[in-house]
Structures are given as C-alpha cells and as structure tokens.
C-alpha cells in the first residue's frame, strides 16, 4: 500500500517534537526502560517486553515494557509524536502494511507471540479489533457495515444469525434505536458521532477480546464525545479496551490505568487517579499541569 499512513507523519516528527522544558536535566538514557509506577500485572492479556519500533532509521518506540490486564481500560496519553499511536498499532499488527516499519521485542497476547512469523494476522485481528481516529464506515449500508466482519469470518450460518449479530452489535454500540428503521441506508449518511458508533458496532460484531481505540473522539463534538465515553464504560464490562487520547480529562473519565508516553519512552504507568493526583515522574507532572503538550 503506497498511501502514507498518518501515523508515519506523526512519527516522522519524533526528532523535532518539543523538548521538555530545559533545566530538569532529563535525557534519553534516564528514560529508556525506566518506567515508574505499576507497569506489570498478574496473568495479563498483553505482555509486552522491551518493545522497539523503527521507521527506517528512526527509532519511534524505545524499549517499552508493559502489561495490560484482562478487562481493564487503559489510556495512553502524551504529547503528539510521543509514539502512543504507533505503539497501539503494534498490538494488532496494523503497522505490517507500512514497508519501512520494523518491530522488535516480545509482544504476547495470552502468552502467544504476536509477531511470531507463523502467527496468523487475520485471526489476531479478529481477536483484537480497532476503532480509528476518523470514523471510516465503508460506503455500504449500515447493515452491511456491521455484517462485514461476521461475513468474512463465517460467524453466521443463517441470515437470522447474522441479523441477531447486527442487532446485538448496534445495541452494544448504542446505535440501534437511532438506525433500526433505516438499516439499508448508507453508513456514510450518518452524523460523525453516529458514524463512529457504527465503527464501534462493526468492531464488536466479530466479538473481539480487545478493542483498540485510536483517539476515537478527536473528530467529534462534545455531545458525541460524551456518548462514546459512556459507551466505553459499558463496553469495559466485556472487553479489554486500550484507548489513545489527547485529552487528559477523557483519560481520567474512562480509564482504570493511564500510561504516559514521552518521545518514544513510556515514562509512567499507574492507576488513573494516582497519575493525575500524585504523579511520580517530573515529566508526567509537567504534562498534566499543562507545562507542555
């Protein structure tokens, strides 16, 4: 695929990203592999050790280790270009389609290596779904958008099964009541917030175990954002959710744990309320108090 991915653009800027305020004397060597807080968990869903990501020569992710627990909501925050989206896209190998991107380190889902050459990426993505920054419904009907995943994976044997899945997913995404009378109209005709909920319905229609969300509200207005945040809270009962966000308020509202990224380093991970009330690392503190970002 030759269209450059937006993620590349972000990470191309890594070198130029705003340096932390001078004077606190922090450099790469101090940050690398020295995450403060509580990065590890027992019997995690994802176990990630010494993860490095390269774009050509540029090192976009610098030896990050992190565990993600079952059914938790974890938020990735940090200034733009800090590598949080890149890191997220490693988890269902969406970076595969970028020629120059290489991933090193150990990434395991339920104890199985994600980047194992024998690993089936289709199966992986069926288990780890994703919602993107901009709503991207297919130019098909609402029904076909949701039914697309179950169809390609052969999850429904009969039309009625498929109908059930579609209804369940749309209900799950809180969209059913708004669209149940016009399932055959194009998905692109919905409002921005509805489109994003449609994309969430599309993702949960294949009953994934994990849902990755890459700034899912950045293109939406506050009311639609609130609606999605409620939805995340509901979904957290049955899914592991990893959400990248620009908004600290959003991270505080929806997540159990928060991870702070800085220039490709994972600086601090902890319970969300601890990160926002008593940050342990000076960089985290600077960021949440708005000194840069």
């Amino acid at each position: 695929m030759n269209t450059m991915n937006p993620v590349i653009d972000q990470d191309a800027k890594v070198e130029k990203a705003p340096e932390p305020p001078a004077g606190n004397g922090i450099n790469d060597a101090d940050l690398e592999g020295r995450t403060v807080g509580r990065p590890f968990a027992d019997a995690p869903k994802f176990s990630l050790r010494d993860v490095e990501v390269f774009y050509g020569e540029t090192r976009a992710i610098k030896r990050i280790s992190l565990d993600i627990a079952r059914n938790e909501v974890i938020a990735f925050i940090g200034p733009s270009g800090c590598g949080k989206s890149t890191f997220l896209r490693c988890l269902n190998r969406m970076n595969d389609s970028i020629d120059i991107c290489r991933v090193k380190g150990q990434l395991q889902l339920d104890g199985h290596d994600i980047y194992d050459p024998k690993r089936d990426v289709v199966e992986l993505r069926a288990r780890v779904g994703m919602v993107f920054q901009k709503p991207n419904p297919f130019p098909k009907s609402i029904y076909d958008n949701v039914a697309y995943g179950p169809r390609i994976h052969g999850l429904a044997n009969r039309k009625s099964d498929l109908d059930d899945i579609v209804e369940r997913s749309l209900r799950g995404a809180g969209l059913w009541n708004e669209v149940k009378d016009r399932l055959d109209t194009p998905g692109t005709g919905l409002s921005g917030g509805q489109q994003q909920r449609l994309c969430i319905a599309r993702a949960i229609a294949v009953s994934p175990e994990v849902v990755l969300m890459d700034e899912p509200c950045s293109a939406l207005d506050p009311i639609a954002t609130a609606r999605i945040e409620e939805l995340i809270a509901e979904l957290s009962e049955s899914y592991t959710i990893i959400i990248v966000t620009h908004s600290m308020q959003q991270a505080a509202r929806v997540s159990d744990r928060t991870a702070y990224f800085h220039l490709g380093h994972l600086v601090e991970v902890n319970e969300t309320n601890k990160v926002f009330t008593t940050p342990q690392h000076p960089l985290t503190e600077s960021y949440i108090t708005g000194r840069f970002g």
């Binding site: 269209t3 779904g129 991207n136």
Partner: peptide, 16 residues
C-alpha cells in the same frame, strides 16, 4: 488510490 487509506485500515483491522 483515490479510495482513502482509512477504508483499508478499517477492513484490515476487522481481520479481513
């Protein structure tokens, strides 16, 4: 190539 990359990503992310 005029079809946006986000369409491809959306489909691939579902495991297509």
């Amino acid at each position: 190539n005029a079809v946006p990359q986000t369409m491809r990503d959306g489909s691939l992310a579902l495991g297509a």
